[in-house]
């Protein structure tokens, strides 16, 4: 497979088939990322179309890039958020896809815990994520799903690296707070049982 950077250079020098290769490679990851913001496929498609048509139009002024992925994610995020903003939709972000139970199988195979226990963990994680702000959820997704470094996340979300660390810290804090509450709940349940 030809290196992303070479394909990118080909596209910048006016090769439309190179742009098609880029589209081919990033359609699924970008669609998936877009799906985290909105569950309306039409908006994601419009954003992707807008992005690739713009890329072609501006190909002569687009720079070479260290990471095509980061460039595309950043541009796509900007286009999509603007579209959602125009439609006055709230900034939302979904980390765990509730319609995709099949994922569990994979997670189950790679852990040694029981299916029932995994289901509980999943529910707890889902609830903890719901307590987070959309931006906190997005950063969790970028860190754990996209496996991006803090510098990359900072560039993508257009915030400083230190803000990125703070955001992650707060997100984890939400997780801990929620988890200690559930632990407390279990604890009080045990105590009340004892009382009876």
């Amino acid at each position: 497979m030809t290196d992303d950077k070479d394909i990118w250079d080909g596209f910048r020098s006016g090769d439309e088939s190179s742009l098609q290769i880029i589209f081919d490679r990033y359609y699924t990851p970008l669609f998936n990322y877009g799906h985290k913001f909105t569950q309306d496929d039409h908006i994601i498609e419009d954003a992707l179309q807008d992005l690739f048509v713009k890329l072609w139009k501006q190909r002569e002024s687009i720079n070479a890039t260290e990471s095509v992925k980061n460039y595309l994610y950043k541009s796509f995020r900007r286009v999509l958020l603007r579209m959602l903003d125009v439609q006055q939709r709230k900034y939302s972000f979904l980390v765990l896809d509730q319609w995709m139970d099949a994922d569990q199988e994979l997670a189950y195979d790679q852990t040694m815990i029981s299916r029932e226990r995994l289901e509980t963990i999943r529910t707890n994680l889902g609830r903890a994520l719901e307590k987070m702000t959309p931006r906190q959820r997005e950063i969790i997704h970028l860190r754990y799903y996209e496996e991006m470094e803090y510098e990359e996340i900072a560039a993508l979300m257009q915030i400083s690296v230190s803000s990125t660390y703070k955001l992650v810290y707060k997100a984890i804090d939400v997780l801990r707070t929620y988890l200690s509450k559930t632990d407390l709940l279990i604890l009080t349940a045990v105590i009340s049982l004892k009382k009876i």
């Binding site: 990851p29 669609f31 765990l96 997670a107 790679q110 999943r122 997704h141």
Partner: peptide, 8 residues
Amino acid sequence: LINKQKPY
């Protein structure tokens, strides 16, 4: 759970 989700 987060990392191994299949893409949409």
